[in-house]
Amino acid sequence: MVDSKKTALYDSHLRLNGKMTDYYGWKLPVEFEGLTLEHEAVRSDAGIFDVSHMGEIEIKGDDAKDFVGYLVTNDITTLKNNQILYTFFLYPDGGVVDDLLVYKFSDTHYFLVVNASNLEKDYEWIKENRKDYHVEINDLSDKYSEIAIQGPKAEQILQKITDKNLSDIKFFYLDRNVFVDGKKAIVSRTGYTGEDGFEIYLANNDIVEVWEKLLEVGKEEGIKPAGLGSRDTLRFEANLPLYGNELSKDITPLEAGLGFFVKLNKESDFIGKEALKKQKEEGLKRKIVGFEMIDKGIPRSGYEVYKDDKKIGFVTTGYHSPTLKKNIGKAMVDIDYADLGTEFDIKIRKRFAKVKVVNTKFLKQNKK
């Protein structure tokens, strides 16, 4: 059995009494003081996450722009330098290899941030589809550690130890020349919680000092270290997908309700384009919907969904929402049962619990 990797912050997490778990080959904290407390801190003040497990892949060269455009579903030709785009890698049949962020440094230099669970697969996928493009492909994941600071007070806290005027970094933009506590960093403003916030990419030997400094200077504002548990409940309330739940090799972006990030009319071809065009033309046979529990019970990923004794789908994610104080979820269901207000049943262990289809925008996102 291969030992789990440890981020540079592993010992810091232990000192903070982090409850560690194995997450796709990484030892990471699932919580510190408690999932709900950490969730509420991000919604009201600020939370800080160790996301060093995320993968970073660099693509540079004369054909970088054309190559990245061929790999992804969204239109990177609209990007300015230092702008960021959310998009997908697809298989030829339209299933999702991964969802990712594309950071544009220049027309000849791109930085792709991918899921830890898919890093090796993504890296091989990119190399396999290189064709005759004149590009250099580098996995930089071992060179970077990453902190995410999220919440209404994130800018206020980070500004205390940063030379850059953070209000100059707009939503889904980055700056590669920021000094955080005297350490050179890439700082971006995207987030995965529905709140305002920043990602800080640093050299591995700089990350501990910056993490501890942020906790120190943010104490007055109520900053909390936060784990994987609250990261998932926060992203879910904000209607942000998780690979393996709302996206997979068996679920297309159209079925997931993420067609906005697929530009079928962009000039360049992309892998999976024909499959998605066909799916759109023929009409979806199933889609992911949001739901709210009517009966008692917390839905979990994988639970079966029924309508009048007929199995019509499965739950992709389900939680008790700490913000809304409700049990909510998402499910992949046959298209005939996807309208708002439709009621169906979820099998929770040996009983059936009634739910109602609601808008997937459970929570208004607070972005700058």
Rank of each mutant, 00 (worst) to 15 (best):
K19L: 10
L14Y: 12
T7V: 10
T36G: 11
D62M: 14
K6I: 02
L14D: 10
E31R: 02
G18W: 00
S44P: 04
L28E: 01
L14V: 12
D62H: 15
S52T: 05
D62S: 15
G55P: 06
A8E: 08
K27E: 14
I59V: 15
D62R: 15
V51I: 15
G55S: 08
E58S: 12
G61H: 11
E56S: 08
E38L: 04
L35Q: 09
T36R: 13
K5W: 08
L14W: 03
E33Y: 07
Y24E: 07
N17G: 13
K19A: 10
E33H: 07
D11F: 01
D62A: 15
S52N: 05
D22R: 09
M20Q: 05
G55Q: 02
V51D: 04
D62W: 14
R43W: 11
S12Q: 03
E56R: 06
Y24I: 03
G55K: 05
D45P: 00
G34A: 14
G61A: 13
S52L: 01
E31D: 13
G18F: 02
D22P: 01
A41V: 08
V42D: 00
G18V: 02
I48M: 09
G25S: 08
E31Q: 12
A46L: 13
D50V: 10
E58W: 05
L35M: 14
L35T: 06
D22G: 11
Y24C: 07
F49A: 01
